Computed example of a mutant assay.
Amino acid sequence: MTSDAGVQELIDGALHGSGLVLEEVVVTPAGRRRVVRVVVDRVLEATGDVTETQRPLTLDEIASATRTVSDALDESDLLGAQPYTLEVTSPGVSRPLTDAQHFRRNVGRLVVLSPVDGESVTGRITRAGSDDLTLHVPSVKKTPARDDTYPYAAIARADVQVEFSRPEDTDATDTPADDDPVDAPLDKEN
C-alpha cells in the first residue's frame, strides 16, 4: 500500500527550487486505479506583514508542476504497478484558511471570518502577519467602516468569498482567475 507521506516527501523534493510549494497530497482508490491529487501554491517570499495581493498561479505554472510531479512519480517505484490518475491543482476558494500562510496569500480578498467568540464578520484582508491579520469591515447600516485585528488563535473559521467583480483592476495577463482551482489531470498507465 502506498503511503501518502512517502508520496508527499517525493513530490516536495521534486518541487524544491521551482517557486512552488506543496500544500497537500491525497492518494485515493478509484476502482482499479488511484487518484493522486496534488495541491500546489506559489512560494510566499514575503516575511513579516503582507499587505499586497499575491499573484495567482498561471496555467503554465500548473502545467510545469504537473510535468515535474509526473516525472518524479515515473522515476520512483513508490506507486507500484497499479495505474493512477494525477491531478495537479492550485488551492480553490472552497478551502478554509487555516494557516498564517493561507491568510498571507489571500491579502486583498473578501473573507467571512468566524471568531472563536463573537459573531461572524465579512471583510477584506488588508494585512496578514505571522500572528494576526487586519480585516477591513465595510460600513453596514448605521455602523461605520472599521479595521479590526484578529489573532489567528482567535479565529474558528475563515473562508474566501467568490467575487465576480473585484474592486481593484486585474491584470489581463493573470490567467486563470484566482477564484477557481486549476486542474491538469494526467492519466498514467504503469
Rank of each mutant, 00 (worst) to 15 (best):
T66C: 02
R124S: 06
V160Y: 00
E45D: 14
S120Y: 03
A153R: 13
V26G: 10
S3V: 07
D148G: 01
R42T: 13
V38K: 05
Q161L: 12
V162Y: 04
V36Q: 08
V112E: 15
L79K: 06
V36D: 06
S90M: 01
P115W: 05
A63V: 09
H16G: 09
D148S: 10
T66G: 05
R32D: 14
P83V: 08
T143F: 09
S18K: 03
P144N: 04
T85S: 10
G92C: 05
P96R: 13
T122G: 06
V182K: 00
P151I: 03
D187A: 14
E61A: 10
T66I: 02
A46T: 13
V43Q: 11
D131P: 02
L97K: 04
T47R: 15
E87I: 12
S94V: 02
V27C: 15
D147P: 00
G129F: 08
T53A: 12
T2E: 07
G123D: 09
D174Y: 02
L79Y: 10
R127F: 07
G118Y: 06
A158W: 01
L186Q: 11
D180W: 07
D49L: 11
S94E: 15
T68M: 02
T68D: 04
R32K: 13
R67S: 12
M1E: 06
L78H: 05
V7G: 07
E61D: 04
V137M: 10
P56W: 00
P181I: 02
Q101W: 03
L110M: 08
L22T: 12
D12A: 14
L133G: 11
T89S: 13
E52G: 00
S94A: 14
M1Q: 04
R67I: 00
P138D: 15
V27F: 09
L73I: 10
D187N: 10
H102M: 02
V21K: 11
V36K: 02
S114H: 15
D183N: 07
Q101S: 12
T58W: 01
R33C: 06
D169Q: 11
V121G: 06
D183S: 08
D77C: 02
S70C: 04
P176V: 06
S76Q: 13
V137S: 09
G80C: 11
L133T: 10
T66Y: 05
A30D: 14
P96C: 06
A177Y: 04
S94I: 03
H136C: 02
R146N: 12
L97C: 05
D159Q: 15
L10D: 10
Y150M: 05
D180Q: 05
V160L: 08
E61G: 04
T68E: 03
D41N: 00
